[in-house]
Nucleic acid binder design. Structure first.
Lengths: 364, 364
DNA sequence: GGTTACAGGGCAATCGTTTGCACCGGGTTT
DNA sequence: AAACCCGGTGCAAACGATTGCCCTGTAACC
């Protein structure tokens, strides 16, 4: 016999009248129904009482709330979500969490989500489009209310995210965003930052600035490259594409890139890496070649990860992209979209873009 | 007018009879109901057809499946979860994801979860019990099927997790586990590893081995300390508690600990830190005091984080706790519990403990 | 006194899916 | 011929909560 049965409770109450005993603890998960039974009111009354509906008297409200508390009642979100077609869950997909950048971004997202009563469903694409697809599907099946995603390095078109439209799940792209205009996105403008970085390197009297870029599919690669070209051009110098390399982020890919750069007749006197992880691999290889790090060649980079403070050869300058703020901004944007979703029809839907400023950080 | 209306579709069909046109695309999310309408069968038939119920004829099954595919039908998990009281979502709570250890652990958990058709709901406690409580609550409200948690450093009793029992949500503790026997847990035995590490340090001719431990609340602190004491004792030496310090993981806390150790009349010639992050802070302070790292004092640690390979002063030895494997093991344990949940009553419930072996890793 | 007004609360439909049971027609068994 | 069986399908309840609408009793009004 389960504790939830009214008659069981009733018997107990009757049997122990003079003890004024009420069976409070229940073996099963408390529901609105049970509260209603025990209080001898209807479920609608309980529901309304709990949500402070004006039609319910203060007395009833109090009684309901009291019992709800005593029973440790918590609304079954699944039922509510089901009914309201809302889940208060946001999907978040990033390439990797082990990267300082993304873990900080997620923290920003998560903190903001929690403030707004949302929880996050989490997945990694491991930088592979196949995995990304799989995770997106899982999120769709879970009917997340919205999705924040940082695309994998393999993702150049986002068809698999189109299916989310049919399910009316808004998407906010984060950092690794598509170049399309008809999407919501939060990102850094690395163009300006890159130009500034190059300016600074010129001031350090560096003339041959090399650049190890990421895969073409990533828009951030293009931004960096554009900034690089602009930066060099501003000094009225000709851009030498020999000085531009690429890595697929693997250690080997980066090593090859560095090897070619060091092998040039006129090797670089500065190397900008796609990010601090690429930088570490680049330094590792350069050391093997007996390069004096940050003397023979100045190393610069992007991301400004925390561990730079502890590494043997941090970049002399790294562009901080403020991932936590980006995460916050992405979540806020999503909240905003979610709130105004019903207002506007999809036809008139306006897409939001938000650019987060970057900052040069120097390690002396 | 919405595409889901039967009459709307009907009209279209009638109007375009000779085109044999069937309106396939639907503006709204397809449901079983809609399939049923279009095929003129009952919802139960559709439901059974989709799940290959033996009582449904092959013909019907085929028709249903075909239309389902054409409509891009995907079952509404929320409804199913609601009905079946299963969500195929696992909650995962860790102190921080920025720590290499936890991010790898999560990867192990996530990969295993995905293989088993589960998705993970994710939260960080930021090492604060208040936040932990909040996140646990959110997970409970989401009715996760199970929870994997690595306790915050402030958590010495897990009362807030007791409420999960009432909701029949099994919990597997991960790495930062309580010392109780009546819980499911996956952890490393750091005792043996610590003893080995001390042995090794003795072989390097170190006699005064100091130890910067973590907060007492964490069982891992006790294990480390026990190992330390055992290791020292095996050499028939007296354990000098002056050589044992503590940190709350803050940079300042670690600095204070190092300061006191260096200030001893007989300062240590080796320092073991609670983990590689504490190690980095310890080194930072020691450098200020002009200690020659890994010469005057050998530094040892736990975790073997990836970035050790790139840091200026990695520990000479670090104990790898194989977080990915731990994550995998935790998820597998949870899967196992979930599958056998109905079999056994809570009374006879047996708790699972799994110990993951560690390994010493040397940085030369 | 009769009507209105309103406070307070109950009924029942609803969300999408599953599932025990009823039903129905035709063939098989005693 | 009555009783059974069985493949194939439909009916309806159930999961937990929300909500539009209806009902009842009492007080205030003309």
């Amino acid at each position: 016999m389960r504790g939830r049965s009214f008659w069981y409770n009733y018997k107990i109450i009757v049997l122990s009248l003079n003890l004024a005993y009420i069976r409070i603890v229940s073996e099963s998960i408390p529901t609105i129904k049970e509260i209603a039974k025990r209080l001898n009111v209807s479920v609608s009354t309980v529901s309304r009482a709990l949500s402070d509906h004006p039609r319910i008297s203060a007395k009833t409200k109090e009684a309901v709330k009291e019992l709800a508390k005593a029973l440790n009642y918590e609304p079954n979100s699944k039922a509510i979500f089901f009914k309201q077609k809302k889940s208060y869950v946001i999907g978040v997909i990033v390439p990797h969490i082990y990267e300082d950048f993304f873990s900080k971004g997620i923290s920003g997202i998560e903190d903001t989500a929690l403030e707004n009563g949302y929880t996050i469903l989490f997945g990694q694409s491991h930088d592979r489009i196949e995995k990304e697809r799989q995770v997106v599907d899982a999120m769709k099946n879970q009917r997340v209310d919205g999705l924040i995603i940082s695309l994998s390095k393999e993702t150049n078109k986002s068809d698999h995210l189109k299916t989310l439209d049919a399910y009316n799940i808004p998407v906010v792209y984060f950092d690794r965003v598509p170049s399309l205009a008809n999407v919501n996105k939060v990102y850094c403008n690395l163009f300006e930052g890159t130009v500034d970085m190059i300016e600074w390197l010129f001031k350090q009297d560096r003339k041959r600035i090399a650049f190890i870029n990421g895969p073409n599919a990533i828009i951030a690669s293009k931004e960096r490259l554009d900034g690089y070209i602009e930066g060099i051009s501003r000094r009225k110098l000709k851009v030498d594409m020999q000085m531009v390399e690429q890595t697929d982020f693997s250690e080997e890919g980066t090593h090859k890139a560095v090897a070619r750069l060091l092998g040039l007749k006129k090797p670089p006197d500065a190397i900008i890496s796609f990010n601090d992880y690429v930088h570490m691999d680049a330094v590792k290889y350069a050391l093997k070649e007996h390069v004096k790090i940050n003397e023979d060649i100045l190393f610069a980079s992007y991301a400004n990860i925390s561990v730079n403070k502890h590494t043997a050869y941090p970049p002399v300058v790294s562009i901080d992209q403020f991932p936590y703020s980006q995460g916050e901004a992405a979540m806020k944007m999503l909240m905003d979209i979610l709130q105004n979703k019903s207002d506007e029809d999809t036809a008139t839907k306006a897409f939001q873009h938000k650019e987060i400023p970057v900052a040069l950080v120097y390690n002396s």
